[in-house]
Design a protein around this nucleic acid. Structure first.
Lengths: 106, 106
DNA sequence: CCCGTGATTCCAGAATTGTCGAATTATCAG
DNA sequence: CTGATAATTCGACAATTCTGGAATCACGGG
């Protein structure tokens, strides 16, 4: 991952609506979520949401696949992992970044 | 780390100049780097750089400390680590994100 | 074909962000 | 004080991003 790609992804995730939507996609796993489901979670107008999703797709962070009348959105897990790996390598102290339990109590 | 903080940090890092500057600060370690040094690396006008640095400081990702005529900038390693931890927990598949060597060859 | 549902596209205005020269502040040396 | 260097602040403009209503497209059922 180069710095251009990283900053592109980061800037797309740097919007609360998009970050929340992306988080939803990740949590949903490979099954993904429909646009309508995302809309119900974020509670923003459809056109605005569609705009944000297209941003994620443009950055390669998400994919969309039609399934009848429903558009199923899935996260690009590979890219997500690459992005985190990039940040680990280039933009954090390189210490252990895994203590998930510690985070809760912090 | 809450989603608001995360998206704030991500959006600040989502600019190539700022991401590069931040990377520099991280690589420099606790010693930090002067604004002038960053400017020499990024090769952008002083006022533009100053603007970007103040963004990083505002987000809490960097600190500035005067040292005579020089302003020493340092990264906020804690926040950087927390951000990566948040992404690991919330926004990636949760697989191993540590194989630094694999990244090189990819 | 017609209707309802899911979702996008179009459009336009508001808001934010990025850029950088000029002026200014801060500090130190002589 | 004067001059030089480091860096910020100011101000103004260009560019981009965000938002959401209205129109449109896509699909399936009757």
């Amino acid at each position: 991952m180069d710095i251009e790609t990283a900053s592109k992804c980061l800037s797309e995730l740097g919007n609360p609506h998009r970050l929340e939507a992306f988080r939803l996609l990740i949590k949903a796993g490979p099954e993904g979520v429909s646009v309508g489901d995302i809309q119900r979670h974020l509670n923003i107008p459809k056109s605005t949401l569609s705009h944000h999703i297209s941003h994620l797709v443009w950055a390669g962070l998400a994919r969309q696949e039609r399934e009848g009348r429903v558009l199923r959105c899935t996260a690009n897990f590979e890219l997500a992992d690459q992005l985190v790996a990039y940040l680990c390598a280039e933009c954090c102290s390189g210490l252990d970044v895994v203590p998930m339990e510690e985070q809760e109590g912090a």
